[in-house]
Simulated scan of single mutants.
Amino acid sequence: MTSKDVEATSEAQTGGAAAVDSVTVSDVRAAMDAAYPPALAESWDKVGLVCGDPKDPVEKIALALECTDEVADQAIADGAQMLVVHHPLLLRGVNSVAADTPKGRILHKLIRAGVALFAAHTNADSARPGVNDQLATILGVHPGAPLAPQPAPGLDTWTVKVPREHVDAVAEAMFEAGAGTIGAYDKCAFRLDGQGQFRPLGSAKPFIGTVGEVEKVEEARLEMVAPRAARSAVIEALKDAHPYEEPAFDIVSNEATGLDPEKAVGIGRVGELDTPMPFKDFVARVAERLPTTEWGVRGAGDPDRIIRKVAVASGAGDSFLDIVGKLGVDAFVTSDLRHHPVDETLRAADFCIVDTAHWASEFPWCYQAAIMLREKLGVPTHVIEIRTDPWTVAAS
């Protein structure tokens, strides 16, 4: 899929940007967090909003695998107000973001141009659909169970008391922030009408009632569920939409149980190949379907072995070699592999190995995220197709 495909698909779905309501950096953050929950990120990872004012408007979103100087320049030239990337710019600690440092230079450039920067990294690797689902699908592999399953993030049950005439507005705001989705259904909620009461004290500025007097109001009790990772976004949306100065709401945490392994979140995917083929042909398919790099695609194993079951792990995946060896797969596709781990694996296990460029295995996710944002927010999106793979020359 190319950026033109994304543009065409999104234009057909949204009818163009002219009719889009005002969208903010906060709205984009909420949409990304709902699709790729921050709770799924590895403990060492640094995901989320890197720079930018959550209240700033966003009329166009650019996406790339990582924010280099060239990517930042292109996002600015494209007229984007937000840049969404996979690799965090500030993953490792820094003690300065001065404009004469490499990372500081990029941040100053973006801030001066009014471009917010957001990163979804290992949370996007583990989410469904996420980076690994995109990689598997492109290669013709069914995106089944993850290589490293994570406990499913539980849901919050929300209970909010709202004046009856405002309940629809509050519910809609909570839906937009990620609440109210159960399986294949969205906008799920329960409502019970009743009567609430309160007495505003001296410092209060009540929407309804008089300071010092007990007020009784016809209210609705609104209930719905939301992913725990969306809690902050739902709270913000609820408070913005609720007419009361101090809205009353409860949040009860629930644990997820009994999840289908093929719906489980986690890094990597294991599944059947759509068409069994010799390993040499499968390596050729990987090279054909992933973005081209100087690194290319390498295969280790019997060229004539028939490949039926495949494991994939986008990005650096040599830590999964031992796990893959226990899954009965015919091939494992990942990136950044080293000589000795591959050599030792081939001696001890019975599967073939495909090594791709790190950038190539993850870049296709940008199109997935672009379409998701366009569908969710109705804002034009554009994938910056600059190849940021660091390897620029190859010889054989």
Rank of each mutant, 00 (worst) to 15 (best):
S203F: 00
P143V: 14
R199M: 15
P163D: 05
D133F: 00
G178C: 09
F175C: 05
M174H: 03
P153M: 13
P146C: 05
N132Q: 12
G144P: 05
R191F: 02
Q195H: 14
T157G: 04
A152G: 11
L155M: 07
G144N: 06
L139G: 05
A127H: 05
A145Q: 14
P153K: 07
R128P: 06
Q150K: 15
G194P: 02
E172S: 12
L192K: 10
P163S: 09
T181G: 05
L147G: 10
T137V: 03
K187W: 00
C188W: 04
L135S: 07
V170H: 01
Q134E: 15
G130N: 06
D186N: 12
F190N: 00
Q197D: 07
R191I: 11
L155S: 08
G154Q: 01
V160M: 02
D168A: 15
P129R: 12
L201V: 14
A189W: 00
P151W: 04
A179N: 01
L139A: 01
I182T: 12
F190L: 06
A177F: 03
Q197V: 01
R164V: 14
V167K: 12
L155F: 09
V141I: 15
I182W: 08
A169P: 02
A177Q: 04
R164L: 10
G154C: 03
V162M: 03
A184P: 03
V170C: 02
P129S: 05
P153D: 08
R128I: 12
P143A: 11
A173G: 10
G194Y: 04
F175R: 06
A136Y: 11
A148T: 07
Q150P: 00
L192S: 14
R164Y: 06
G144S: 05
Q150E: 12
V131N: 10
E176C: 10
A152T: 13
P146G: 09
H166Y: 12
G144A: 06
G202T: 15
A136L: 10
D168H: 08
Q134L: 04
A127V: 03
G183L: 08
A169S: 12
Q195T: 13
T137R: 12
D133S: 04
F198L: 07
P163W: 09
T181H: 14
T137Q: 10
L201F: 00
G144V: 10
G154Y: 08
G194M: 10
T137P: 08
V170Y: 02
R128Y: 08
Y185C: 09
V160F: 03
D186L: 00
L155N: 11
S203W: 00
Q134C: 14
R199N: 04
R199H: 06
G180T: 09
K161E: 10
K187A: 06
K161F: 13
R191D: 00
A204S: 15
H166E: 14
D193A: 13
A148E: 13
H166R: 14
